[in-house]
Design a protein around this nucleic acid. Structure first.
Length: 166
DNA sequence: TGCAAGATTTTC
DNA sequence: AAAATCTTGCAG
């Protein structure tokens, strides 16, 4: 799959982050570990969400993976609409990839998960506020969501903006 | 030990 | 627009 939508969560100063104000519980422990590992949590009792821990040990920042598309579609081939949207949304993405909380803390290479640089091809990255964090006060308006502009598998496209024309 | 709320998805 | 569904975190 090729990741097409992400959100950043900025450690202890980000009210929308699970590690806001230095929270450190068993659930978020992988966030506090070294980068390059997964942080997976269950949400609403039903779904799972996958994050990539990004910083060094002790700095709990991560990127939430919200949507991905099949490589074949990304390379221009046609795929069924159901397949295109199979990993659209953080919960569906985890279900499509078989990711559960059991993988929280696992390395993103060699540990059952494989994350690598995708085929970058002159796409436009749109930005906007993060989804579902209205409770986070000012942080709710921070433009920390990033997505491939115009991609149908990207969620909540209404709130996304293209970068200023160059 | 109990309860309110949630980084969502699906259906009415 | 609202339910489904249950874990986490915090209060007591």
């Amino acid at each position: 799959m090729v990741i097409v939508e992400t959100e950043a969560y900025l450690g202890v100063s980000d009210r929308a982050a699970h590690t806001w104000a230095g929270r450190r519980t068993a659930r978020v422990e992988p966030m506090w570990g070294p980068g390059g590992r997964a942080y997976v949590y269950r949400i609403y009792g039903i779904h799972h969400c996958l994050n990539v821990v990004t910083r060094r040990e002790g700095v709990p920042e991560a990127v939430l993976i919200r949507a991905a598309v099949p490589e074949r579609w990304w390379m221009g081939e046609k795929v069924a609409r159901s397949a295109l949207l199979e990993a659209s949304g953080p919960g569906r993405l985890c279900r499509a990839l078989g990711i559960t909380a059991a993988l929280s803390g696992a390395p993103l290479s060699g540990g059952g998960l494989e994350l690598r640089r995708g085929p970058g091809r002159g796409f436009v990255v749109a930005t906007g506020p993060r989804v579902g964090v209205d409770y986070a006060g000012e942080a709710a308006s921070w433009p920390l969501r990033f997505a491939v502009d115009g991609c149908e598998a990207v969620t909540a496209r209404r709130s996304l903006r293209r970068p200023p024309a160059s």
